[in-house]
Amino acid sequence: MTVDVTVVGGGISGLACARAVRDAGGSVRVIDRGRRPGGRLSSRTIDGRAVDLGASYFVVGDDERFARVAADWEARGVARGWTDTFSAIDADGSVTRKTGPLRWAALGGSRALVLDLADGADVESGREVAHAAPFRVDGVDAGEVVLAMPEPQARRLTDGIPVAPQEWEPVIAVVLRWDKRRWPADLHGAFVNGDPEVAFLADDGDRRGDDAPVLVVHTTGAAARRYLDDPDAAIPPVATATRRLLGIDVEPVSAVAHRWTFARPTRTTGEPFFRSPGLSLCGDAWGESAAVRTAWSSGDALGRALAAS
């Protein structure tokens, strides 16, 4: 039976879209190529615990609908306010603490946010879609089709979409585990200035609340481009840079690298989503700034628009 909406892409934007359609009484199916939904809110089990590899945190911002979702996550123990203080680390290792908006994290790993949105939804995981067209997916009637993914990936699935090409920056996420925490307890997360390898690092044990001695380090875009064909090659230079920046005098006991070919858009469209009859797009490039809340808001707004029609 044909559903009202078929969403291709099981990240937070796609599941927010699906939830909005369902809440309005419509029928919706989500198709995702991963083993479980998550997209760039991905957590991977490493050394027996879930480690956040993608988006490092989320900020609620001034979207009242997303604020209600975050409050519900907090009330049910899915997410919590993490910290309003990050560090800025210069290439010479000097550190400045800076306060800002409250950053939120998921206690069970960031994938838990998407799995919560997916609860009760019709989700087909592990399926690679070959072709999408208005009202059809892989040649089968699909209702309104939503491509909830970066535009370069969406373009590969269609015969042409009337939107301007978008540029995306890659990132290699490197997970470094030590035998014990060897950095200041108030580090939380840090933006790195002027280093050729490292752009951001997060204390994953602090973020998750279990005090595991694990850092997740994101490379610069330039470094990621060098290592895209061999992500593991990023581990030695990233580990060396991290030790230098934080003054750590021992090697990590384990390290894992993960490639994000389309980690974040270099600029956003300013529009909440793209919609045309039978084929629409949503995601974190469709908004004012690339962020988790933008991805959710884009999917939610598109889902409500489709349901209203």
Rank of each mutant, 00 (worst) to 15 (best):
D230G: 02
W82N: 03
F273N: 03
G48D: 14
G26Y: 00
G81T: 01
L246V: 03
R111D: 07
S254D: 12
F135W: 15
L187H: 06
S254P: 06
D119R: 14
R33N: 03
P265V: 07
R65V: 15
D122K: 04
L246H: 06
P134S: 00
L15K: 02
G160V: 11
R44D: 14
S94V: 00
G9C: 12
G278P: 10
V216G: 01
A71D: 14
A130K: 15
G126V: 04
P196A: 12
R127E: 12
P213C: 01
I248K: 01
D159T: 10
A223Y: 12
G9H: 10
Y57S: 14
A106P: 10
T261L: 15
L281I: 03
P237T: 03
A142V: 12
V292F: 13
D47C: 05
G143D: 08
V137M: 09
D195V: 03
H218E: 14
V198W: 09
I172Y: 08
G26T: 11
D4A: 10
V238L: 01
R76F: 04
P265L: 13
R19V: 12
C282L: 12
A88S: 08
A239H: 01
L187N: 05
P162T: 00
D229L: 08
R40C: 15
A290R: 02
V146S: 02
E197K: 02
R76L: 11
V21W: 04
T6C: 09
L113D: 11
F86C: 04
W178T: 00
W82V: 07
L117P: 02
A70Y: 02
G10H: 01
L41V: 14
D32L: 08
T261Y: 02
A263G: 10
A185M: 02
S87F: 00
A91S: 09
A173E: 07
P231M: 08
D186C: 01
E151S: 01
L117T: 04
S43N: 06
M1A: 05
D232F: 09
A305H: 13
A222L: 06
A257N: 07
R275D: 12
W168S: 01
H218Q: 11
M149C: 07
T99Y: 01
S110Y: 07
D122P: 00
L147D: 07
D62Y: 13
R29Q: 13
P152T: 10
S27N: 00
A67G: 09
G126R: 03
T261W: 10
D203I: 05
A105K: 00
W260H: 15
R243V: 08
S125G: 04
A118P: 09
A222Y: 02
S110I: 15
F86G: 14
G278N: 08
V123C: 03
D284N: 12
G303Y: 08
G270V: 11
P134T: 12
T240Y: 00
V214H: 05
W286F: 15
K180W: 13
V8G: 06
H131L: 12
V146D: 05
V256C: 03
D300T: 05
P237C: 05
R97L: 15
L281R: 10
S280V: 08
A55K: 04
R65P: 02
P170N: 08
P277R: 00
L176I: 01
F86N: 09
L302D: 07
F200T: 10
F66H: 02
G270L: 13
